[in-house]
């Protein structure tokens, strides 16, 4: 190996090729974010009723509701309210109505909880599913392949919250090995630092992992099967390379792209909204916060959350593109 990078092309080269593309993509992302913020704002405003009525409660006096509306600025024209939301988002003044705290405070702790869950799930599921996918493709039509294929098919067909519920029934209620819900003790906001935290993490993590592993294993298998039929694999074999080397160095590297994309999408889903899993296991992450914000009609919080999640999504899309260009020299974006 000379000075060439291990995979694909060098970062310097990637950067040069991607420069103008990168700028255009960022502009496009900004447009998407702006449009999304408008759409969300109008959905919130188009709804019958408003947060003041909900906060005042059933049977509240009309004057009270009017006063609350006045105080919360709900009587200003829509463009003014939109501008207030948007400015608040960037200056950090946007306050959640239900929690009565700034957006950043409400989000930070939950972001940590979601990140914790996400990292554990991504790490374990990638480590387990890629070898499984490789095994399934290489030992095609053997008992291994059938077992993995059946598992993967079951994994993409199962409702993730039901798996969590089953794990709660089996490990929480029958065997009493694990706590049923919640997050447990934490040190400085991180619960993976305590044993209790780990015990709480098992059920949500396992249920998400099963589903994610299924997707990754399926993608890995089909992508590798396709690559194994390519000419260069035959060439590598006819050069007399050992099969292990042919598969690991020549085939797998080129078959990884779809799996990487899926890992990117997985990151999005896990950090931004494992809504169902977090709700059923009462894991206090962003997904559960999204659900609470919607149920409580917390407009400022929801507006802020949507934008944060959308920004995160745009960053991951961009990262996936960059990674592709880095890994696969054939890809040129224009």
């Amino acid at each position: 190996m000379s000075g060439a990078p291990l995979l694909g092309r060098s970062w310097a080269e990637t950067r040069k090729l991607m420069g103008s593309y990168f700028v255009r993509r960022v502009l496009q992302s900004l447009f998407v974010l702006l449009a999304l913020s408008l759409i969300i704002f109008f959905i919130l405003k188009a709804a019958p009723g408003n947060i003041a009525q909900i906060m005042a409660g059933i049977g509240a006096k009309l004057e009270d509701i009017a006063a609350l509306e006045e105080r919360m600025g709900l009587n200003s024209p829509w463009p003014v309210q939109y501008w207030r939301f948007l400015r608040g988002f960037f200056t950090g003044d946007l306050r959640s109505a239900a929690f009565n705290e700034p957006l950043l405070t409400v989000m930070s702790r939950r972001l940590l909880a979601s990140a914790e869950l996400g990292v554990v799930v991504i790490l374990f599921s990638v480590l387990l599913s890629i070898p499984a996918g490789i095994l399934s493709a290489v030992r095609r039509n053997t008992i291994w392949d059938y077992a993995i294929t059946v598992f993967a098919l079951a994994g993409i067909s199962v409702p993730v919250f039901w798996i969590a519920l089953l794990l709660m029934i089996v490990f929480g209620s029958w065997l009493r090995w694990l706590p049923i819900s919640g997050r447990g003790m934490d040190i400085g906001g991180l619960s993976i630092l305590t044993l209790d935290g780990w015990r709480h993490l098992v059920i949500p993590a396992l249920s998400l992992m099963l589903v994610q592993m299924a997707m990754n294993a399926r993608l890995m298998r089909s992508s590798l099967l396709e690559v194994l039929q390519q000419d260069y694999v035959t060439t590598a074999r006819s050069k007399g390379l050992r099969e292990v080397r042919v598969i690991l160095r020549h085939a797998v590297r080129n078959a990884l792209n779809p799996v990487l994309t899926n890992v990117g999408l997985m990151t999005q889903m896990l950090f931004a909204g494992a809504i169902l899993t977090e709700t059923v296991t009462a894991w206090p992450g962003v997904g559960r916060l999204v659900y609470q914000a919607i149920v409580m009609r917390d407009e400022p919080l929801l507006f802020g959350l949507t934008l944060v999640i959308a920004i995160f999504f745009q960053i991951t899309y961009l990262a996936i593109d960059l990674l592709y260009a880095y890994l696969d020299p054939v890809i040129v974006y224009d």
Binding site: V32, L33, L36, Q268, M269, A272, G273, I275, L276, V290, I294, T306, I309, A310, F313, Q314
Partner: peptide
Amino acid sequence: LNSIPFLM
């Protein structure tokens, strides 16, 4: 549509 989770 792809910039926030569908379920959300």
